[in-house]
Write a protein that binds this DNA or RNA. Structure first.
Lengths: 235, 235
DNA sequence: CGCTTGGCTTGACTATTGTCATGTAACCGC
DNA sequence: GCGGTTACATGACAATAGTCAAGCCAAGCG
């Protein structure tokens, strides 16, 4: 990827596009690029935060290692998304670890550059807050999903998020390994397989890393239905 | 509760105690107190945020109504804790609804007072960010729990959080309805009952709203064990 | 080619949780 | 105390998800 193209994507990222051009230039000049290969680690939980990370290409997962050794995926970010704003501003340790799940390009803005900028322009702090808040919001949505939906429903919603259109039929590409998808959705890979099978009856066909959705609305109906009510209707 | 006592608690809340005395005075003078009865609503999701809320007494739950009509409890706050900082600063709608689960006293700081203060003292913005970040962190921890632990383990951890000591035996009082506890932990009330039964074998006895823990360390071991490994050992 | 490897699927079985129905004990107003 | 309500517990059963083991299949390689 060329320098220009990278920079263009970075400038249009959710975080940077809300800053002035001057500010962005300043930040970019102090930042550095980094490419990661699949499975390479960006940082570990409890490590002191040195930068904000802006994903420019590929996919990066944030996860936690649980006391008993398992891994819980907290979120997966892609092109245009950023993470670590809050920790960088406050200088606290990362609460999660980060790892590339595909080959990825990441822009890293040093924490010092960020704090410096906020000191000069407090308004920029509110922008950071906005980014943090949107992460908070995403986590709330995820909690809701985990507590109120079955595995198959979460898979359905995952597909719907990937699909661009909002009615009719559609073809989506699964962007990373099924092991990672399963983790992100809080189920085991085997259950993901079975969820895909179950979704066949709602017009979803999966082969390799491609999924075809016959009728987006039908899938949405399923993902939002009360599982209990659903099974009553059919039995 | 007397005005003085309330104010004292409010001043010592996580949010306010990080502001200067002057700033706190200013905020307090613009805020108002509100008492809520059990089951009374503070605000609804999608409503425009008017204030930051500081719980001074009682317990308040934040929850979301899911598309299919269920409710997913996101968090439960008590004395000294605050919520809504990010929305108040940004003026976005609440992403959750709030309801008192016991009779409660709440200090409400108008959003305008907050933005005004941050404008005058940008450093205060960082304090807000800190509060928001700690909520973010709590949500991450909750996600991890939901994804990596069984119901019984989450119940165990809930008891451990309530217990003040960190070894030996201990007696804790369940602070609110079991329906709410179950919701907070992402299980049904019936499963909570059964989880309590299962915890008997780890020295936990529950009667009415009191729980006795024989050995805190033993309970912690259980809550952190790999459920699969555990069952292998015993079969 | 055929072998190997990794990623995925399947099947059989178990564990966990939800659902529904029913029982029970405490609490409240009278 | 009596009736009624509320909160909680329990049992039987169904659904959902995890575990373990085996198999499939395409990609890569000698």
């Amino acid at each position: 990827m060329t320098e220009d193209r990278r920079t263009l994507i970075a400038r249009n990222s959710l975080l940077l596009k809300s800053f002035s051009e001057q500010q962005t230039d300043m930040l970019l000049s102090m930042s550095h690029w980094h490419t990661y290969q699949r499975n390479q680690t960006l940082f570990q939980q409890d490590e002191k935060a040195r930068s904000i990370h802006v994903v420019v290409d590929g996919w990066v997962k944030l996860y936690r290692i649980t006391p008993n050794g398992g891994e819980a995926i907290v979120s997966v970010f892609t092109k245009g998304q950023s993470f670590g704003e809050a920790v960088a501003l406050r200088g606290t340790p990362y609460p999660v670890s980060a790892e590339a799940v595909t080959d990825s390009e990441v822009l890293q803005i040093p924490a010092a550059a960020v704090t410096e900028m906020v000191r000069r322009d407090p308004e920029a702090g509110v922008t950071m807050l906005a980014a943090t808040f949107s992460h908070l919001h995403a986590l709330v949505a995820q909690l809701e999903q985990l507590k109120a939906q079955t595995g198959a429903q979460r898979v359905a919603e995952f597909l719907l998020e990937l699909s661009e259109r909002d009615e009719g039929s559609c073809l989506v590409t699964l962007p990373y390994d099924k092991v990672v998808i399963a983790g992100r959705l809080g189920i085991k890979p085997e259950s993901l397989s079975r969820a895909f099978s179950k979704l066949k009856e709602f017009g979803v066909k999966v082969s390799r890393n491609n999924a075809a959705i016959d009728d987006i609305q039908r899938l949405r109906d399923f993902s939002e239905s009360d599982p209990a009510a659903f099974w009553n209707k059919r039995s």
